[in-house]
Design a protein around this nucleic acid. Structure first.
Lengths: 204, 204
DNA sequence: AAAAATACTTGACCGTCGGTCGAAAATGTG
DNA sequence: CACATTTTCGACCGACGGTCAAGTATTTTT
């Protein structure tokens, strides 16, 4: 039985992210939880940063894989609808797997470092998917943007940015208005029909 | 001559931010540069974070003060034009004072922590000013937003977010398209006339 | 099968850094 | 002057990310 050490490290880190405050996610703790020596951790990863980023990246890739396997190939579903489902699977994180959704856990952490990694990874992993959906929407005639790549980037950036709840008013009315604005912003970016993204604030 | 220690600490920190990589901005270095003991630093500030944040906040406040003293009271200037000047004074940072513009220096640092502080401070310090300009624009009839507070927040967030150049493509064409999009986003947020924010990408 | 080379594992150790603390110096007060 | 209060200080602490020499396991070579 050849245990994959890298996998052990991932698992241990994810568990720590689920359980612990960011300050308790130390390399020593990761090594201990993984049941290996600290030196081994550094044999497989160059730095702690690299580990955390790899975990974040992995989570997004899992969500993307999930999207293409279960949602993207649905017939009779518009690309705007698919976009909605993609965002939901990321934002709401209610697609329950055995292992609880890492993206959700990650977003709960207030550490700026983690949020930066989330932002970078979102642009890297999610924006291309949104871009592809935009091409499909353009073919369908529901989206009319001339610059799909840039639009996808801006949309993903805006959405992930506002997921970082650490810095904004929690007042329900303001949050509602904010989401309304953001849905308008998305319509603007996509040149989609008015109301296309109302689901962002209409569904709880 | 009663030297204000807090001011010494500010000055020292700003100098370090101008000169050094983020990793070299240590509390020891700040104390040394300020010519006081490390203990004294902690007599005036609770933590290093608090120092850095105070410096960021100070920079924004200075920009805001500057704006109200030199720009806001200009007659014959529309509030959209004033908004432009406000953004320029922050983004382009070319209003030369004796002391070089701290906001510019701050933005050059790639550290996520610093950028997070910049984002928080921008929402805190700049958004209210934009909100006020929006009320004025509404009175003028150039802005028609129903939710000035939320719009101001979103606008400031989007702009500061995209100032963090660490994560986006630097391709000139893409940057141009992105800025075009953002100007459209701003028009959407403000319900302002099409083209109101073209200056964001037309002026170099 | 033995020897040599390579891949992997380990935890004690290191340097750095943010933050503390108790004692001393300075300042204020009556 | 005596006493209390504020300010100053740097040695010290604990924690953390990262290194390394010294091993052990595994594969390759002969």
């Amino acid at each position: 039985m050849k245990t994959d050490k890298k996998e052990l490290i991932f698992k241990a880190t994810e568990e720590l992210i689920s359980e612990a405050a960011y300050n308790d996610i130390t390399v020593d703790a990761i090594a201990k939880k993984a049941g290996i020596g600290k030196g081994s951790v550094y044999y497989y990863f160059k730095s702690k940063d690299e580990i955390i980023y790899a975990v974040v990246e992995r989570s997004y890739r899992r969500a993307v894989r999930d999207f293409f396997e279960n949602i993207h190939n649905r017939p009779e579903t518009s690309s705007i609808e698919k976009m909605k489902l993609l965002f939901h699977s990321i934002i709401k994180c209610d697609y329950s797997e055995n292992e609880k959704n890492m993206l959700h856990k990650l977003n709960l952490h207030e550490d700026p470092d983690i949020h930066h990694k989330i932002n970078v990874a979102a642009i890297q992993e999610i924006a291309p998917v949104v871009e592809q959906l935009m091409y499909e929407g353009i073919a369908e005639g529901t989206i009319h943007s001339q610059t799909p790549k840039e639009s996808a980037e801006v949309i993903v950036a805006v959405l992930t940015y506002f997921l970082d709840r650490t810095m904004y008013s929690e007042d329900p009315q303001i949050m509602l208005n904010r989401m309304k604005l953001i849905s308008e912003v998305m319509e603007t970016c996509l040149k989609a029909e008015k109301g296309s993204f109302d689901y962002l604030y209409k569904l709880n």
